[in-house]
């Protein structure tokens, strides 16, 4: 067993909040630059230029990339040989997010009592946390400030078990088409196939944590991702929906075995400000 003190976890979360909201990951930046080179629509190029200048300015001046500093989504991998000491883990994550957002001048966007008073919690807490227990004695924290413009465009369906790739493709392309400019294209399309209803959506969200454009290790899934990307970009929606070749930077598909009666499909969209930062303790 290795002891990890909650102070260390809290400190890491504070740092991740402040860095993730300001620094666009390099893989996203490179994907945007490649898209700018390929893009043919003059208005789309103008939009991509603004997005690239924004990333540069945000990093130079340590300004948030986007005013929507998101719901703080945390993917936590805890090694089974780790012993968290000095306090509660959930509390440490919550305090880390609260301090990170307050001290980082980040927007508090979370409201409690969601269907009545909608009272702002004041410091963007609580985060949404997904925990996995893995082998080893480390803790890996991935922090994703997830904007709501794109999150609102998430969709889920249950297809007939035999619907296959065609059924999934139809649903994914329709979801992107209906979302239009709302999720801030060029987007990253996360697709979760299999498991159960809630697990499919978890997979879709997990899919957008993959490095942009890195193909799935399974060749058949990777080929499907490439087809989906082509079909999504054939829509012509383009950056901010002004029309163009670049509607999505990537489509990532994650799968899990499912029931004989089922084919659940979830789509989770990520905006071009695809913020993600990780720490390993």
């Amino acid at each position: 067993m290795r002891d990890v003190h909650v102070d260390e976890i809290r400190g890491a979360v504070v740092r991740l909040c402040q860095e993730a909201t300001v620094l666009l990951p390099n893989d996203v930046l490179q994907a945007l630059k490649r898209a700018r080179q390929r893009e043919e629509s003059p208005l789309a190029r103008q939009v991509l230029d603004q997005i690239l200048r924004n990333a540069e300015l945000a990093a130079d001046e340590m300004l948030p990339l986007c005013q929507d500093t998101g719901t703080t989504v945390i993917f936590l991998e805890i090694g089974q040989d780790v012993h968290v000491v000095g306090g509660g883990l959930t509390e440490a994550l919550r305090e880390g997010v609260g301090s990170g957002y307050r001290e980082g001048f980040l927007r508090a966007s979370i409201v409690d009592k969601p269907f009545t008073e909608r009272i702002n919690t004041g410091d963007n807490t609580p985060p949404v946390v997904h925990t996995e227990i893995v082998p080893g004695d480390r803790i890996r924290i991935q922090l994703m400030p997830k904007g709501s413009g794109c999150e609102n465009m998430s969709r889920f369906t249950t297809l007939l078990p035999g619907a296959g790739k065609d059924g999934i493709a139809e649903f994914v392309v329709r979801t992107v088409e209906e979302a239009g400019g709302n999720p801030c294209p060029p987007i990253i399309v996360g697709v979760g196939v299999g498991g159960t209803a809630e697990y499919a959506m978890y997979l879709a969200k997990k899919a957008i944590t993959r490095r942009v454009g890195e193909p799935h290790p399974d060749a058949e899934t990777a080929a499907f991702e490439a087809d989906l990307l082509e079909w999504v970009n054939a829509l012509g929606i383009g950056p901010q929906a002004v029309g163009g070749r670049t509607t999505a930077l990537a489509v990532h598909v994650e799968t899990y075995p499912t029931h004989i009666a089922a084919l659940p499909v979830a789509v989770n969209l990520q905006c071009h400000s695809a913020r993600l930062k990780e720490a390993v303790l």
């Binding site: 603004q50 200048r53 300015l57 300004l63 990339l65 986007c66 005013q67 002004v242 905006c271």
Partner: peptide
């Protein structure tokens, strides 16, 4: 009018 979503740092200037 459209402004570029996700360009909040630039637009703030």
């Amino acid at each position: 009018f459209l402004a570029v979503g996700g360009a909040g740092a630039l637009l703030s200037k």
